[in-house]
Amino acid sequence: MTRSPLLGVALCTLALSGCVAPAPDDSAYQSKAVQTAQAALSAARTALLTTRTHADDRLPSTYLEPVLVDAEQALDSVRTTFDSVQPPATSAADELRAALDPLLESAASDVTELRIAARRDRTGALASAADDLSGIADQLEAFAGEHGG
């Protein structure tokens, strides 16, 4: 039974498109960036709210830990997805990336700090990581507001 040539073409296209996400135009990249910022904001604020509620003794550490682990994973996944998108060759796109990337990186490392401090029950480290993350979260929110629809 001969294989359909169409099938071959389809498979090749699929394989190639999987390598790198297609380079979108400026507006598509911008909405992708905003989406990313919103997802990162959500994870960051979740971590913050949960940490603060834990500090107020309204939430046990058994609840805090899985929430922080999930927030950390969410931030990592959001960052990876965003980095895998090939930006269009415009200065606007580069600016967006330059603004967003460091925020994503800081947010991820702050949440990791939170998770480690939570597990080790180090309230001091918890508070300082939370302060930093709070600032990052506000910047993410500002980014999304500035570039959002």
Partner: peptide, 18 residues
């Protein structure tokens, strides 16, 4: 108000803790 979107069960219970 916090900009949190629900994607985990932990977030569902958070308001109760608060």
């Amino acid at each position: 108000p916090a900009g949190i979107e629900v994607g985990t069960l932990g977030q569902v219970g958070l308001p109760v803790a608060v």
